[in-house]
Amino acid sequence: MKKITLEICCGTTCYMLGTQKLLQIENIMPEEWKNCVAVSAIPCLNNCTSENICGAPFVRINGEIMSHASVESIFNRIRELLPGEGEE
């Protein structure tokens, strides 16, 4: 199975609004997910503008931008994307 990609924005705005915690996500992820999810940090997703700063922090999961990212919302999305999990 192709790994789920999780990219975390390390830009100034996202970092100030919560990325710091998200960068540790691999350490608190369920052990059985670690082979299915590829976590990486990227310099900036270029998603913050003056209009949507409140959407930060941003992450990108399988190419899709997620705003207001939190450990919980990221975990929920990964759960949906994992094969089999959604059908339970």
Binding site: Y15, A41, P43
Partner: peptide
């Protein structure tokens, strides 16, 4: 971050960030 993504785009390269460095990163990315 934006500066790096401009250079990534123009020079066709990609930044590599080692997440294992987080422990020593203090209060900076």
């Amino acid at each position: 971050g934006t500066t790096a993504s401009i250079i990534e785009r123009e020079l066709h390269t990609k930044v590599e960030i080692d997440l294992n460095l987080m422990k020593a990163s203090g209060d900076l990315p």
